[in-house]
């Protein structure tokens, strides 16, 4: 059994890593839950965002915060464009998965074409900064990512809960025909949501660039865990996605400390399997 300090540190790192899971899950959860589109390309977009942040920083000495200001609107438009294709071809839930798989492979190829398959590391002065809380270290960047995830999750929740657009989106997800009969313009809102979801991928990307080492194959590393987070959190439930991200993050990092790092994936997927079997109504 590891020491209490080690365990405490594991919980802290798990929470912080979980924030990033939650941030990635947020956009996926929205488009899946409200548009019934499974956007596998969300991971590719996030990594593309990370590489763009890296490129803007390395080549133009643009700070990551300024890079994000550029990337977010561009990604919003990318999301709108992707949805335009889906809307034009009336893509179904399942076809969306296959089409976005194709998009993912194309983005992966583009990344590999420009940045090669080699690992890239974005060196910033913030990378090693951390705050000390008692015996525990809290890395500043990870904390920032986690706080951003929490802020976005709360804002998105409030948006869906209280704004007209949010209510209209939820109504359309329940029954598009009835919602349309009551004057909901589902098409316009779907474009907005798809754009927002892609913009979230861009924000997640900026943090990925700052926190982790980049390689094109990283796209696939996130898929399993984040899908688990999305389902555990409940579709189109921003707070749920955040909490599920934190839960999975903590359970993974505690497993790493208590057992061995290699067993970590077993935890998240066992949680997912048990949850799906016990509560199949969540998806």
């Amino acid at each position: 059994m590891p020491s209490l300090t080690l365990l405490g540190q594991a919980v802290v790192s798990g929470l912080l890593a979980g924030g990033l899971y939650g941030l990635l899950a947020l956009g996926l959860s929205l488009s899946w839950g409200l548009l019934r589109l499974v956007n596998l390309a969300h991971f590719a977009l996030a990594l593309l965002g990370a590489y763009l942040t890296y490129q803007l920083g390395v080549a133009f000495h643009l700070s990551p915060w300024l890079a994000a200001v550029i990337i977010v609107p561009v990604f919003f438009l990318l999301g709108v464009g992707l949805h335009a294709v889906f809307a034009y071809f009336r893509v179904t839930e399942f076809t969306s998965l296959l089409v976005t798989f194709g998009v993912t492979v194309i983005i992966e190829s583009v990344i590999q074409w420009f940045w090669t398959a080699d690992f890239r590391r974005y060196e910033t002065p913030y990378a090693t900064a951390s705050t000390r809380v008692g015996p525990l270290f809290v890395p500043t960047l990870d904390l920032l990512a986690c706080l951003t995830a929490a802020a976005l999750a709360l804002a998105t929740w409030a948006w869906l809960r209280f704004s007209y657009v949010g209510k209209a989106l939820r109504a359309s997800a329940e029954d598009p025909a009835i919602a349309a009969a009551f004057g909901v313009n589902h098409r316009a809102q779907a474009f907005l949501l798809s754009g927002v979801s892609a913009a979230y991928a861009g924000i997640a990307g900026a943090f990925i660039a700052l926190i982790s080492t980049l390689a094109p194959s990283q796209i696939w590393a996130w898929v399993g865990v984040v899908f688990a987070v999305v389902i555990i959190g409940g579709l189109a439930n921003p707070i749920g996605a955040l909490l599920a991200g934190l839960l999975i993050g903590v359970s993974e990092s505690v497993t790493m400390v208590v057992v061995t790092p290699a067993w970590a994936p077993l935890v998240s997927f066992s949680v997912l399997i048990l949850l799906l079997i016990a509560r199949p109504g969540r998806v």
Binding site: F227, F269, L272, I273
Partner: peptide, 11 residues
């Protein structure tokens, strides 16, 4: 998703 999760568990 269940079958995908089973794959990761088995791995």
């Amino acid at each position: 998703l269940l079958t995908l999760a089973v794959t990761f568990v088995l791995a």
